[in-house]
Design a binder for these strands. Structure first.
Length: 415
RNA sequence: GGAGAGUUGGCUGAGUGGUCGAAAGCGCCUCCCUGCUAAGGAGGUAUACGGGUAACUGUAUCGAGGGUUCGAAUCCCUCACUCUCCGCCA
């Protein structure tokens, strides 16, 4: 949620800043709602004040055994008006809330305009692209079993067998250990979250269609960002507890509504996938450097695995709803002959902390700290990248040295 | 699933219909005293949202939501959560 006071003070500025994100802020609508809110709020609070005062008088009269009938009538009158006006106020307030919850985060000053992925800027690359046009992971290993998954749950799921399942599991431990080495505390968290948490991190109310709903108010998490960030919800953090750095491995569940026909083959886009997420909560002045730090933590995983990748900075049009600045890490996939997203590292500034009521005691001033997160990394896509990049074209996948001890193997035989 | 107890400010914890935004303690801040990493004394110290240039001031908040009442932290109902016991269970 953006700061309503900023919006009140400089609506044109906010509107212009959001244009870069292709969001059309309705300033006039906001002004109308907010001024009606103000009128009604002043009126309602005044009526309540009158009611409180008269009730006190009423008590006095009662105590002295005096006649209360006149006061009683006045009170009835006020209560009637109050009820009406309060209803109107509540309607306005919930409208205002909906309006505010719909507004995306303001992009960072570094963010450049652009309408889509095409306009993202490559920041750096790592490693050499060794192979092109090779066969894809499904053709390399028959231990990725899509058909069985279809039988169990339908499309966009997978069953992994034997060494591929173990490699998948090894990657998770490997990534968690790197995160721990980099100062993130490990957490085991719920894989289901309530709507309040999802509103806090920004998935709701706008993107309900992307989620799997399991009951009235509960959803499968689309990312560990939700539980990890909400660990801090409704709390007042002390300055010396920052930066707070946490990590978790979780499955992630995404309905992938609207992506029909996209990435239908293989593990690239699944309803369920594993991810190791890293989250930081930092002092507002430290989030720029924290994002670079977090990004480097994610890159480290790919470097150790010797997988070629590039880092891109997202342009305004490609930036997520809650993010002010995002770097994507894209790993090279030989079968697709291109780089594909394997991590997304974002600075959410105070957007999430305002929604989740995360506060920081900054020398007596209560401020909203900044939250950041990134994948380090998406496990399924890392698995694909490993298989495709490290397949020796014979029947072996060559396991990178740092990963070997997690697997107790130097190579995996395939087919 | 059954029975009971609870949920109060940054923390601990009192408060069973108005004088309660709420005792007391802890913590924190300011000052005083003390020449020494201590002790003591005085005062201050919730949050959110409004109105006002400001001093200041209004409203709301005692788990959440409803109800009773002129008036609710306090009474009633529903729900959530915590704890204890029983049952069940990985």
């Amino acid at each position: 949620m953006i700061d309503i006071n900023f919006l009140r003070a400089e609506p044109e500025k906010v509107r212009d800043l959001l244009k870069i994100k292709n969001y059309d802020l309705k300033i006039d609508l906001f002004r109308d709602i907010d001024s009606e809110r103000k009128t009604l709020q002043v009126l309602v609070e005044d009526l309540k004040g009158q009611k409180n005062n008269l009730s006190k008088e009423f008590g006095e009269l009662k105590k002295n055994n005096q006649d209360t009938s006149e006061l009683s009538n006045q009170l009835k009158e006020i209560k009637k008006r109050l009820e009406e006006k309060e209803d109107s106020l509540n309607t306005i307030l919930s409208g205002l809330r909906d309006f505010l919850l719909d507004i995306p985060n303001i992009p960072h000053k570094d963010v450049e305009p652009g309408s889509s992925e095409e306009d993202n800027k490559v920041i750096r690359t790592f490693g050499d692209i060794q192979k092109k046009d090779s066969i894809d992971h499904l053709d390399i290993s028959s231990d990725i079993d899509i058909e069985s998954a279809v039988k169990i749950a339908g499309s966009r799921f997978a069953v992994l067998n034997n060494d591929i399942a173990k490699l998948h599991r090894a990657l998770i431990s490997f990534m968690l250990d790197i995160a721990e080495k980099n100062g993130y505390e490990e957490r085991y968290v719920p894989y289901i979250a309530n709507s309040k948490s999802l509103v806090g991190t920004g998935q709701l109310p706008k993107f309900e269609d992307d989620l799997f709903k399991v009951s009235d108010d509960l959803y499968l998490i689309p990312t560990a960002e939700v539980p990890l960030t909400n660990l801090f919800a409704d709390s007042l953090l002390e300055k010396d507890s920052l930066p707070a750095k946490v990590t978790s491995h979780t499955p992630c569940f995404r309905s992938e509504a609207g992506s029909y026909g996209k990435d239908t083959r293989g593990l690239i886009r699944q309803h369920q996938f594993e991810k190791v997420e890293i989250v930081q909560v930092v002092h507002p002045e430290k989030s720029d450097e924290a994002l670079e730090d977090l990004l480097s933590n994610a890159e480290e995983v790919l470097q150790l695995l010797e997988l070629p990748y590039q880092v891109v900075q997202l342009c305004g049009g490609d930036l997520g709803f809650s993010s002010s600045k995002t770097y994507d890490i894209e790993v090279w996939l030989p079968s697709q002959n291109k780089y594909r997203e394997i991590s997304s590292c974002s600075n959410f500034t105070d957007f999430q902390s305002r929604r989740s009521k995360i506060r920081l005691n900054d020398d007596g001033h209560k401020v909203h700290p900044h939250t950041l997160n990134g994948s380090a990394l998406a496990v399924g896509r890392t698995l694909i990248a490993l298989i495709e990049n490290l397949y020796d074209e014979k029947e072996l996948i060559l396991i990178p040295k740092p990963l070997q001890k997690y697997l107790n193997k130097e190579v995996i035989k395939v087919k």
